[in-house]
């Protein structure tokens, strides 16, 4: 009769139905963030900054104080919040249409300044909320509503690899790309987010985690097929791994 509860919803993750489409992996990333906040005992001192996009309703799902930033400006808002409230734990949660497009300036400078914030960047290669337009991260050949014949390398260029770019900037303490398509990758994502949060807690610098996720609706795929696409098409284009870890560089 020794039954042990091994998996349940973290308390800080609201017990409500999300507005996300079936199979959308924002839910998985929300859960991992919520678990990490609980594990570090940060719930009471966290201020989240949510972005524009499907993740705009973050404040309905992760029950911490939240600031809603204008489109793309989450790292700038998070900078202000962190500088005004140095004792607070501040993280921004952004999608690829938000962070890699309109928010490119803010993320680059926040990373370069080495702000003591953590940024979770969910990359699903498409603008989800607005109806599946081409994003900077859209892959060559991928069909979206604004490139119905597929993204053309000559006309629109190739997808932006944010993690590789961020890793080259001075103030970055931790930068990694992970996915949530398999159990193994979910475990890696949790390790990465935990490490990114740690860099902020220890005051090491800027923490950045890019998570590859699906958008079954705008990819026009079933949830299962979309999840397979992450492994087959996205990971070869966006290789997983840790691109920078300040703690490891100091001890060669």
């Amino acid at each position: 009769m020794s039954e042990q509860l091994v998996f349940t919803r973290p308390e800080v993750l609201a017990d409500v139905a999300t507005h996300y489409c079936p199979g959308c992996q924002h839910g998985v990333v929300h859960r991992i963030v919520a678990e990490c906040l609980e594990e570090f005992g940060l719930v009471e001192k966290t201020i989240a900054v949510s972005s524009i996009g499907c993740s705009v309703f973050l404040y309905n799902y992760i029950l911490v104080d939240t600031v809603e930033a204008p489109h793309g400006r989450a790292p700038a808002v998070a900078t202000g919040v962190k500088r005004a409230r140095k004792d607070a734990f501040v993280f921004a949660y952004q999608g690829d249409g938000d962070l890699a497009s309109i928010g490119m300036a803010e993320i680059m400078h926040a990373a370069n300044r080495g702000e003591r914030i953590s940024v979770i960047f969910v990359n699903n290669t498409v603008y989800g909320m607005t109806g599946g337009q081409m994003a900077p991260t859209t892959m060559v050949g991928q069909k979206t509503t604004t490139c119905p014949a597929g993204r053309c390398m000559e006309r629109e260029g190739g997808p932006i690899h944010m993690s590789e770019i961020i890793a080259t900037l001075g103030g970055v303490a931790y930068c990694a790309r992970t996915a949530v398509n398999t159990i193994k990758n979910i475990a890696q994502t949790k390790r990465a987010i935990r490490r990114a949060f740690e860099t902020q807690i220890n005051g090491e610098g800027f923490g950045f985690v890019e998570v590859l996720a699906t958008c079954p609706t705008n990819w026009r795929m079933s949830s299962v097929a979309a999840n397979e696409r992450v492994g087959k098409e996205m990971i070869p284009e966006f290789p997983l791994g840790v691109f920078k870890d300040a703690a490891k560089e100091e001890q060669p």
């Binding site: 139905a17 999300t18 859960r31 979910i186």
Partner: peptide, 13 residues
């Protein structure tokens, strides 16, 4: 862990 809607609770015995 895979469920995007955290709809599954697991007990192990």
């Amino acid at each position: 862990q895979m469920c995007p809607d955290v709809a599954i609770t697991v007990w192990r015995t």
